[in-house]
């Protein structure tokens, strides 16, 4: 491993910027993501920062069952995130549509049809600790040795 790569690994392991986007959820998952910010779970002690700005994000958390308004917009948000990046589906909705995936509804799940999803956290809604755990276990898989793996 080159020296630059090991430096990058060290930096990236303590600096993960997270952005979240709600593509048609009931808010349940969103408030659990917000709860992760609380001093009780203290997401920042792991070097994770929630900024909600796609242009400086590394990880995109997606909640919700994909409504028609997002068809073009989610992809453009995904394209704005600089490499290396990963998307995590939070809750049942982006995975299967949960209770909303019935005849007559407007939703179009799963979100994996529209952008690549790296990890999924099922639950309606998942607990804050599970969300935190997902981000922490996905980050090294995606970001470690990113340049060497790409080359």
């Amino acid at each position: 491993m080159s020296m630059i790569q090991s430096m990058k690994n060290a930096v990236r392991s303590r600096s993960i910027h997270v952005s979240y986007v709600n593509v048609g959820s009931c808010n349940g998952c969103d408030i659990e993501i917000l709860a992760v910010l609380a001093p009780r779970y203290d997401i920042e002690q792991y070097g994770i920062y929630v900024h909600n700005n796609p242009r400086e994000a590394d990880i995109l958390l997606i909640t919700g069952a994909f409504t028609p308004q997002w068809e073009d917009k989610l992809e453009s948000i995904w394209n704005k995130i600089p490499e290396p990046k990963a998307a995590i589906a939070i809750g049942n909705c982006p995975i299967s549509g949960c209770v909303f995936n019935r005849r007559g509804s407007f939703v179009d799940p799963p979100v994996a049809k529209h952008i690549p999803i790296a990890a999924e956290v099922p639950g309606c809604p998942p607990r804050p600790t599970e969300i935190l755990n997902a981000v922490l276990s996905l980050a090294p898989v995606v970001f470690k040795d990113y340049e060497e793996k790409k080359a």
Binding site: N22, G64, T67, Q69, F100, R102, G104, S105, F106
Partner: peptide, 13 residues
């Protein structure tokens, strides 16, 4: 709006 319109009332019927 329209970003989270799921049509819950339609599913409920």
């Amino acid at each position: 709006l329209g970003y989270v319109k799921k049509g819950i009332e339609r599913i409920m019927r």
